[in-house]
Design a protein around this nucleic acid. Sequence first.
DNA 1: CGAAAGGTTGAAACTTCTCAAGCAGGGTGG
DNA 2: CCACCCTGCTTGAGAAGTTTCAACCTTTCG
Lengths: 235, 235
Amino acid sequence: MPARFVRKLEKFGRLSKAERQVIIDASQNTRKIAARKSILHEDENAHTSCLILSGLACRYKIFEDGARQIVDFLVPGDFCEGDANQPEYHLGTLSQCVIAYLDNDVLADIMDKYPRISRNLWRASKAEAAVLREWLVNIGRRNADKRVAYLICELCTRLDGSDADVPGGCALPVSQIELADATALSTVHINRVLSRLREKRLVTLQRRSIIIKDLPRLKAHAQFQDVYLQLPKSA
Amino acid sequence: MPARFVRKLEKFGRLSKAERQVIIDASQNTRKIAARKSILHEDENAHTSCLILSGLACRYKIFEDGARQIVDFLVPGDFCEGDANQPEYHLGTLSQCVIAYLDNDVLADIMDKYPRISRNLWRASKAEAAVLREWLVNIGRRNADKRVAYLICELCTRLDGSDADVPGGCALPVSQIELADATALSTVHINRVLSRLREKRLVTLQRRSIIIKDLPRLKAHAQFQDVYLQLPKSA
DNA sequence: CGAAAGGTTGAAACTTCTCAAGCAGGGTGG
DNA sequence: CCACCCTGCTTGAGAAGTTTCAACCTTTCG
């Protein structure tokens, strides 16, 4: 595995480095997936887990009318799997991703062999729940401007360091449509919100990506506190 | 422990009955808590877990201006704990509750002794995340009428059987203010939504509680699907 | 070169919120 | 026992935020 993947994984794992390595070693295959593709095929959904090695992915729900709600972003180091109990939810890539796949049976064996893995998967899952709660509050109680700024801060923080091109900030491979799907706003309104953020020189826009050059300033503007992300203290 | 607690626990546990029993046996103490009280004192937050034996509780975030967002309900059988990484979040009761408390150190010992417990806590946590995703979608994408109906359906389903007074339905010990806090709507608007539901004879209102006599009809109205709750198939 | 996808802008409509006032019930102290 | 108060519920009217619709522009890609 290329060194840069490992570097990324160390920064933001919800599992420890050693635990991720166990999963990577047991992985049956690693695939490179293009942007905007499904991560799990229909038939894999119920019995396959995966570990994001690079790129940006998300979990989303599709409604009958085609509307979409993104409910979580997945960054390098995140462990995820399909859920047969949420059949309308899917995992998909936003940028090109490299993903390690693992059959759930193999995962069960690993958990038998390394009891700490299941305990730490529990911890990781609790961390995921903390992020979900924060999204809930964000969508439920913050107005459009703060909501968008807050979400950008979260994503940028979780991706921190994985973007060599923008030191101290990052380029998010997210279109305005996708940002609307994640914040539960219309694309038209997202566009107006981003225009205001651009006027304040907090973000720069490019087709299909959002560039943040001064993350600390955006965090101050969004009143963003990152405790809930449970980052390593050294960061 | 009274038999009715056990009966309730069997219906809706996210942990299996046996696992809950292990936790109950290890519990240092069980307390009866009045309605609208905090479940964990400030100093317990970081090192105490609990298991709801009866009653209805919730997790919520308090904002500086006093506003509140309820992010989850806790029903009998649910396992929960404080989270030092989300200092603005709290656990509180809505009705009178009986709760078993457990020190996290003791929980760690249990997990060493019964490896399956940690694996199933992981499963339980994933189930909790599924509920959170559904709340996110509910608040993000449904209009006030559907949102309220949907949430009532979820809560009623999770509480199913614990209300002997309303066979086939239930009485939710939730005020309009609390429902507003959970759905991210204003109390004024909740009142108007509930008036419409009452006109359609889908709910009956009492001071500080909402009574559903015909849950199947309300579910049809809200287009509520309960797969995500992962109920036992026998139900 | 044309088509498709993403972004931008304006105007009107709609949902929900806020403010404000009043009502109803339950509990408490005199 | 009554008066009062506090909390929760109800209703109206205006304001605010967000969506929808529609048109057009820009970039990318085949």
